[in-house]
Simulated assay, not measured.
Amino acid sequence: MSDVLEIPETPLFERERSKNGYRMNKMAMSLGKPENRAAFIADEEAFLDSFGLGEAEKQAVMNRDWHRMVSLGGNLFFILKIAAIDPASMAEIGAAQAGMSQEEFLKTRLGKM
């Protein structure tokens, strides 16, 4: 029996995933500083490289693939700092996590259109 609760198609933020996502989460948390946001906007790839992100992490961030970032160990609270740069709405991120369009997500999850 596993010590980790498993929910189908849901990447849980547990110890191993937390360790794997450390660099990406550290980078995202750094975006709380204006000078880091400016560096991110000026040359995103170089900024990601400065935190030692691997190719999969870099591609997930650069593609704003929210679901992939979480599956690679990204903590949603830190990933929201990346979302604030573009900006992306919580509904957009929630839809990506659920594998739905934003319209479908709003309708099925929140009863809105």
Score class of each variant (00 low, 15 high):
residue 68 R to A: 15
residue 39 A to N: 01
residue 58 K to Y: 08
residue 48 L to T: 01
residue 111 G to P: 05
residue 18 S to N: 10
residue 47 F to K: 00
residue 62 M to Q: 11
residue 52 G to N: 09
residue 12 L to I: 12
residue 30 S to R: 02
residue 37 R to M: 10
residue 26 K to A: 05
residue 103 E to V: 10
residue 78 F to A: 03
residue 107 K to G: 00
residue 39 A to Y: 00
residue 87 P to F: 15
residue 71 S to Q: 09
residue 5 L to Q: 12
residue 41 I to G: 00
residue 82 I to F: 13
residue 26 K to E: 07
residue 30 S to T: 06
residue 83 A to Y: 04
residue 4 V to L: 14
residue 40 F to S: 00
residue 68 R to Y: 10
residue 11 P to A: 10
residue 28 A to F: 02
residue 112 K to Q: 13
residue 36 N to H: 11
residue 18 S to E: 15
residue 56 A to L: 14
residue 24 M to G: 00
residue 30 S to L: 07
residue 81 K to T: 05
residue 110 L to Q: 07
residue 21 G to E: 04
residue 87 P to I: 12
residue 4 V to E: 15
residue 21 G to C: 08
residue 23 R to K: 11
residue 16 E to A: 09
residue 6 E to L: 10
residue 54 G to L: 12
residue 95 A to W: 05
residue 52 G to K: 14
residue 109 R to V: 08
residue 36 N to D: 04
residue 13 F to C: 05
residue 11 P to C: 07
residue 86 D to R: 13
residue 26 K to V: 06
residue 78 F to N: 04
residue 100 M to E: 14
residue 48 L to I: 06
residue 55 E to R: 13
residue 42 A to Y: 02
residue 22 Y to P: 00
residue 83 A to F: 06
residue 88 A to I: 11
residue 52 G to V: 06
residue 62 M to N: 03
residue 41 I to D: 06
residue 16 E to K: 14
residue 28 A to V: 02
residue 110 L to W: 14
residue 101 S to V: 11
residue 62 M to V: 03
residue 72 L to R: 00
residue 9 E to V: 02
residue 110 L to T: 00
residue 93 I to G: 03
residue 21 G to M: 05
residue 76 L to R: 10
residue 34 P to D: 10
residue 47 F to V: 01
residue 26 K to Y: 06
residue 52 G to H: 10
residue 16 E to P: 06
residue 79 I to S: 03
residue 87 P to A: 12
residue 85 I to F: 07
residue 72 L to T: 04
residue 24 M to T: 01
residue 78 F to D: 03
residue 20 N to L: 10
residue 76 L to E: 08
residue 13 F to Q: 08
residue 113 M to R: 12
residue 18 S to Y: 15
residue 39 A to Q: 06
residue 41 I to M: 06
residue 27 M to L: 14
residue 4 V to R: 15
residue 22 Y to H: 07
residue 82 I to H: 01
residue 81 K to W: 11
residue 49 D to T: 08
residue 51 F to E: 02
residue 85 I to G: 01
residue 48 L to H: 02
residue 24 M to F: 10
residue 28 A to Q: 01
residue 80 L to A: 07
residue 97 Q to N: 11
residue 26 K to P: 00
residue 90 M to L: 08
residue 93 I to P: 02
residue 9 E to H: 09
residue 19 K to D: 07
residue 80 L to W: 12
residue 50 S to D: 08
residue 90 M to R: 07
residue 79 I to V: 11
residue 67 H to M: 04
residue 30 S to G: 05
residue 106 L to S: 05
residue 36 N to C: 02
residue 11 P to N: 08
residue 2 S to K: 12
residue 43 D to N: 15
residue 76 L to S: 09
residue 95 A to D: 06
residue 12 L to D: 05
residue 4 V to D: 15
residue 103 E to W: 10
residue 25 N to H: 05
residue 23 R to Y: 06
residue 9 E to Q: 09
residue 46 A to G: 02
residue 33 K to F: 14
residue 71 S to M: 07
residue 5 L to F: 13
residue 51 F to P: 01
residue 107 K to S: 09
residue 98 A to W: 07
residue 80 L to N: 12
residue 18 S to H: 14
residue 52 G to R: 14
residue 48 L to R: 00
residue 91 A to W: 14
residue 107 K to H: 09
residue 92 E to M: 14
residue 63 N to W: 04
